[in-house]
Design a binder for these strands. Sequence first.
DNA 1: CGTCCAGGTCTAC
DNA 2: GGTAGACCTGGACGC
Length: 300
Amino acid sequence: MALLGTFDLAGGAGEPVDYRRVLASHGVARLAPLRVDVAGRVLETTIGAGGTVRTIVMREASPGRVDVEVTGRAPGDRARRGLLETARHILRLDEDLSDFYALCASDETLSWVTTGAGRLIRSPSVFEDVVKTICTTNCAWSATVRMADALVRELGDAAPGGRRAFPGPEAMAAAGTEFYREVARAGYRGPYLLTLARDVADGRVDLEALADPELPDAEVEKRLLALPGIGPYAAAHIMLISLGRYGRLVLDSWTRPTYAALCGRPTADRAIEHQFRRYGRYAGLAFWLRLTENWLDRET
DNA sequence: CGTCCAGGTCTAC
DNA sequence: GGTAGACCTGGACGC
């Protein structure tokens, strides 16, 4: 393992970052090839970087400082810069959440957020988060884990140390329908995943372009909904965890009852949206944080 | 053993 | 525009 570099834990405007809150930010951050150890303050993943594949380990070695280490021999300067950039991208460290924190500060149910929550881990590519989100739909979490594990194990490139990266669209497009049916056991999602991978690999669909801040949220949502297997839940989820577009609420069979338990009674979707309207473009993030406030407790 | 349903979506009315 | 049924899979239930 070679030390690539060290980050100060601070947001785009210098706002605080609670590393354990980042690691426990959402469930998809625990799918292969990512591994999180919240108590140990470690995030590990394997990424492809310009033809080479490396496992990177991001550890809060001392308060407010994250060491980034990499498996294998020390990379060259160019690869080193690329890996560090990807690490910052995954941790969303350049995002400025100070406007959001200002809104939270005057809300007694969310003022705790301002100590460094709200930064959601994202994958190196939008493609990876889109595929994983499709794997969360209409199935138990164990099935989502099984599908993601199979994709990485069977289709991902290996890094020094033996761990594998998430497969790119080309590798997923090259896998046969039998792989999705018999190995990933993706069921009816198999054709969705295969179609998506082919469209991205062939250039008919550009998912990475959705990160372009010039695109309006409505246009991004429209393009996501046009993808196979992506409906309102999945579009909102991808916009939240991958694209930093927090305006939509993720409403699904986990968030609805979780919010109902918080309120003591069920609330209609429209009413929930109304209750978070004051957060504007951060409404979805505010809702998500209300639901996950206790996620650090369950880690310890 | 059958039925239900889990971090939904698609198609057909 | 809104709603019913079908849909892969496999754990969790009730009988």
